[in-house]
Amino acid sequence: MCPACGGPLIVVEFEGVEVDHCCACHGLWFDAGELDVLVSLGGGDAERLRAALAATPTERSGRRCLRCGRRLQTVAVGDAPSVQVERCRVGHGFWLDAGELDRVALAATGGAGTPEGRAVAAFLAELFRYRVGDSTKG
C-alpha cells in the first residue's frame, strides 16, 4: 500500500537495487542504503547524500513507514531550494514523491551547477525516465 495515496505498490529492481514504486502516484520508497547505492552508481558521493538526508526533522508527516508503520518525519534536504522528503524515524528508509528524486540527488551532490550533480541527476533520470523523475507529469 502506498503511504501517500493508498494505491498498489510494485517492486522495481534495477542493478540489484529494489525500489518500491506506486503505480498510481509514482512516489518511490527507498529502503535504508538503497538510495546511497543508486547515487554512487551514478557517480555521486554517497557520504554526502547520507549527511544531507540526516538533517534535523521539521515536522511529523501524516504518512507511515512502509516497514514499521511508524509515522514518517519530514526533513528538508539541501539548501535553497530545499526538498521536503519523508524519512522513517528509526531509519527504515525514505519516501520520495514523484519528481523529488532528481531534486534530492541534485541537492545532495552539489546542485545542477556541478558536473557531479548533473551526472547523478542524469543517471537517475535515465533510470526512472518515465514519469517518476519528471516533475511536470508527476
Binding site: E15, G16, E18, D31, A32, G33, E34, D36, S40, L41
Partner: peptide
C-alpha cells in the same frame, strides 16, 4: 566498482 550497501540493508534484502 559496484558499491556495496550497508550490511543492514544487505541483510534486509
Amino acid at each position: 566498482p559496484r558499491p556495496v550497501a550497508e550490511d543492514a540493508a544487505q541483510r534486509a534484502r
